[in-house]
Design a protein around this nucleic acid. Structure first.
Length: 271
DNA sequence: ATGATTTCCTGTAGGC
DNA sequence: TGCCTACAGGAAATCA
C-alpha cells in the first residue's frame, strides 16, 4: 500500500517527467466519489503542470491556472505514466494525456479507497484531511514526538497511524519503526519515555529514508510511476512475518490486531 | 474530547 | 475445479 516512501518515489518521478507539460485532456472513466470536482474538468485542459508536492500520503499537482489535482492512492491505488496506446488495466479510473504527444497519466485503484480531485486554491486549503495533516516525519524531533504522545492511552501503533499527529506512516512503516525502536505496538502512548521517543523518531526517519532510497515497498499493488517495482519489501523485519523468526533474536514474530490493524512485532525485542 | 469500532471496496487465499 | 468465506487496509463516520 502506498505510504510516504511510495508516494515520495512517485513524486520524484513526476518532478522529472511532468513539470512543464501541458494537460491535453482529463478523462474520467467513472462517475462516483473516486473522482471529485469534475465540474472543473474543462478548466484543467490546456493548463501546464507547474509544481508537484507531497504532504503525508497526499500528492498535489499544481497547475498554471491556479487549480490543483489532489491525489490519494488509498491502499491499492496506482499512479502511472503510460503510452496512450498501452492497454488499459482494469480499474483504471482516470486518464490525463500530456502534451509530449505519446504519454498519459493514469490512476487505477481496484479497492477504491483513494481518489483524485480537481480543486481551486481555497478548496485545497480547506480540504479537511489535507489541511489538518500532522507533523512531517522528517522534521520531527524527540521532544515534539514525546509531547504529542503525552496524556494518551491510545496504543502507540494507533497513534502513529493517525495522520493528524504524524503525516505519512501507514501499517508497514509503523510496524517497522516500532520494531527498530524496540517498542511494543500496544504500549499506551503516554507511557513512552523521552528516551524511547528519541529512538522512535530516529527509526521512523531512517526506515522512511531507506525505503525511499529503495523505491518503496512493492507488497501487493504498489508500482512506481513507470511500472517497475520498489525493493524495500525485502528489507521488512516484521511486517507480514507472523510465525517467522525475528531477525535479532530468532523468536517468532507475533501478530495482534491493534486499532483494527494487523500489527506485527517481536515479543522478545519490543517492550 | 478521546478512543474504539464500523464502513467503504474487490482481489486473493484458504477451506471443503 | 468451483464455490464460499474471511481477510487485507486509509481514512471518514459513527458510537460509547
Amino acid at each position: 500500500m502506498p505510504e510516504l516512501p511510495e508516494v515520495e518515489t512517485i513524486l520524484r518521478s513526476l518532478l522529472k517527467l511532468t513539470i512543464g507539460r501541458r494537460i491535453l485532456d482529463f478523462i474520467p472513466l467513472r462517475d462516483d466519489y473516486i473522482l471529485r470536482g469534475l465540474d472543473r474538468r474543462a478548466e484543467v485542459v490546456n493548463a501546464v503542470i507547474q509544481a508537484v508536492e507531497r504532504r503525508g500520503k497526499f500528492l498535489a499537482i499544481h497547475l498554471s491556472n491556479g487549480l490543483s489535482l489532489l491525489h490519494h492512492l488509498g491502499m491499492s491505488g496506482r499512479l502511472m505514466l503510460r503510452l496512450k496506446e498501452d492497454p488499459l488495466e482494469n480499474h483504471t479510473h482516470l486518464r490525463v494525456p500530456l502534451d509530449d504527444g505519446s504519454y498519459e497519466l493514469r490512476q487505477r485503484d481496484p479497492r477504491r479507497f483513494g481518489f483524485a480531485a480537481i480543486l481551486a486554491k481555497d478548496e485545497l486549503e480547506s480540504f479537511e484531511s489535507w489541511a489538518r495533516l500532522g507533523a512531517d516525519p522528517f522534521r520531527l524531533r524527540a521532544p515534539r514526538l514525546h509531547a504529542l504522545l503525552q496524556g494518551r492511552k491510545q496504543a502507540v501503533k494507533s497513534f502513529l497511524l493517525d495522520q493528524r499527529r504524524i503525516a505519512g506512516l501507514g501499517n508497514i512503516y509503523a510496524d517497522e519503526a516500532l520494531f527498530r525502536a524496540g517498542i511494543h505496538p500496544a504500549r499506551p502512548s503516554g507511557q513512552i519515555t523521552l528516551a524511547e521517543a528519541g529512538r522512535l523518531f530516529k527509526h521512523i526517519r531512517n526506515v522512511l529514508r531507506e525505503s525511499i532510497a529503495a523505491g518503496g515497498s512493492s507488497t501487493n499493488d504498489y508500482q512506481r510511476l513507470d511500472g517497475t517495482l520498489g525493493l524495500f519489501q525485502h528489507k521488512h523485519r516484521v511486517y507480514r512475518r507472523e510465525g517467522l523468526p525475528c531477525f535479532k533474536c530468532r523468536n517468532r514474530i507475533e501478530r495482534w490486531v491493534i486499532g483494527g490493524r494487523g500489527s506485527y512485532f517481536c515479543p522478545h525485542c519490543q517492550h
